[in-house]
Design a protein around this nucleic acid. Structure first.
Length: 361
DNA sequence: CGAATTTGACCCGCGC
DNA sequence: GCGCGGGTCAAATTCG
């Protein structure tokens, strides 16, 4: 629902009419030829500019009022949407096991169905209930489901040996590989894993080497485990979603724009990479915080792409880190149209409130 | 021999 | 409507 993009709420507040006049004055002073006729032209222009200023001010006022209305509508709609989502969450979860059905599956025997995990069993059970719903509801639920899944996406990057092509990430959970694909944007194959420890565990992960640095493996986790961790990770921190919150691994909540500091390796923005295994290595140049020890088994260190980290607490106090963090936040906030709109609304609201109190404007 | 992995085929959403 | 590409399935193969 990108209706913020329908209305350009950005305001160019850098209106400086005086600048032009000053420029003219400076120019005439510079030439040293202050002709009377030129002064007349300047005076006339100043008058025009004053008029223009008044016109723009009134226009600005109108726009501010319109903006306030738009923001109010936006907030109202958003609240309605949130309410609707909360009421529909149960339904969305019911159908969250996926809607796709292969032709072969419909004619497959029960033995084949036994090979499927409980996900598919749930699919069968809930598929019936969703059949009764209308197509509109179905598509709506699908969108909500997608948003629901989106809210649980965690991206983790790990430093591994570039020669190691296994794409296996030892994160303490038991994964079953169910597919591999070469994607268009990255020549390195992407592997698809499903959590195989608990039959009904909906968590999936995609593992792919970074196109920029082949030694870095990017794992994308989708969903939340409904069971405890099977074993301790062999190296570095756990990269599952439950511990991800503790480690502040990049968790895409809702839309990517809501992440103040996007740290996906594929994104164009800078990356803070916390290597939680070597405390003394700091790559200052690209603000990569390395923190690595040697793994007892593989020797691979795990870098956790993150915004902040409990283990990286000492780095948070570093002025470079804080400055970088502030810059990142400022950048993402200024890029966010909804933030701009909210800010404009807040400012205009304050001004209007102040004017009402003082009776001026 | 059962479990895990590989891999080609299939499905489906999306852009043109 | 068609083609493309990402994601998934499931038969074949490998491994312990």
């Amino acid at each position: 629902m990108e209706f913020t993009s329908l209305v350009d709420t950005s305001l160019d507040l850098s209106f400086r009419p005086r600048q032009k006049v000053l420029k003219q004055e400076v120019q005439s002073d510079f030439t040293g030829l202050s002709i009377e006729r030129e002064n007349m032209v300047v005076k006339n222009e100043a008058g025009d500019l004053l008029e223009e200023l008044n016109r723009v001010s009134s226009e600005n006022k109108k726009l501010t009022e319109m903006l306030t209305v738009v923001c109010e509508n936006y907030n109202a709609l958003r609240n309605q949407m949130m309410e609707y989502m909360s009421t529909q969450n149960g339904v969305a979860e019911d159908t969250s096991a996926g809607s796709r059905k292969r032709k072969a599956e419909s004619i497959s025997n029960p033995v084949n169905n036994n090979n499927n995990n409980n996900n598919n069993n749930m699919d069968v059970v809930h598929g019936r209930s969703s059949e009764s719903s209308s197509s509109d509801e179905e598509s709506c639920c699908k969108k909500l489901r997608e948003e629901h899944i989106k809210a649980k996406v965690t991206i983790v990057s790990m430093k591994t040996d570039a020669s190691d092509t296994s794409l296996i990430v030892k994160d303490g959970y038991q994964w079953r590989k169910y597919g591999q694909k070469v994607t268009r944007d990255n020549p390195c194959p992407r592997a698809y894993f499903r959590c195989s420890f608990a039959p009904g565990c909906p968590v999936k992960k995609k593992v792919q080497r970074s196109i920029e640095d082949q030694s870095i493996v990017v794992a994308t986790y989708e969903g939340e485990h409904n069971h405890p961790q099977t074993s301790k990770p062999e190296s570095g921190p756990s990269t599952n979603t439950s511990t991800a919150s503790r480690l502040n691994v990049t968790t895409i909540a809702g839309t990517t724009t809501s992440v103040p500091c996007s740290t996906t390796l594929n994104s164009s923005g800078p990356t803070i990479t916390l290597d939680l295994t070597a405390p003394k290595t700091v790559e200052k140049r690209d603000m990569k915080m390395n923190h690595s020890t040697t793994s007892p088994t593989s020797g691979n260190s795990i870098r956790t792409t993150t915004t902040t980290s409990a283990a990286g607490g000492e780095y948070q106090n570093r002025p470079e880190f804080q400055q970088f963090l502030i810059e990142q936040m400022a950048t993402s906030l200024t890029k966010d149209p909804s933030f701009k709109a909210a800010l404009a609304a807040a400012i205009s609201g304050k001004i209007l409130q102040h004017n009402n109190q003082t009776g001026r404007w």
